[in-house]
Amino acid sequence: METEPTTPRPTPEEAAAALREAESAQESTRAVKVPAWYYPVLGLIIAPYGLLFVIPHEGWWLAAYLLGLVAFLTATVVLMRVGVNQMGVLRWLTPRELRPIAVWSLFPIIGGIGLYLVHGTPWAWVATTAGLGVAIGLFGPYHRRTSPYYQTSGNR
């Protein structure tokens, strides 16, 4: 057990070595990859969400709508918990890492808005969330290949 009743200050060389150790520990922690299945499953959860906009909100359909909403929220929470438990690390992606999916998401969102404005149909939102689901599903392998934190040797 390391004790420090009178911890001497490190020499410059010792301080540099300590900094290298700290940096290495940080790199190996950030390098824990999101599981390969995570984003494709998230995409599958999000894709059908638009159907909630076409379900009538009356009678038995209201029950279906509420069930769908609960299922969506539950699936998202369960996915996050399972993914984080598998990783052993909880790390939110940085803005830089999220930039690709933010840009890709603009296409189905703007497309959906345009479709709705032109045709006035709630099915536009079905197309939007389906498109978002595809974008998110494709983001997973892209992220695993390109995240700067994963570009270290021996990452898992």
Partner: peptide, 13 residues
């Protein structure tokens, strides 16, 4: 130091 470094890099480990 390593423990703190790891935890500083992410939200939870």
């Amino acid at each position: 130091l390593r423990i703190c470094a790891m935890l500083d890099a992410v939200d939870q480990v």
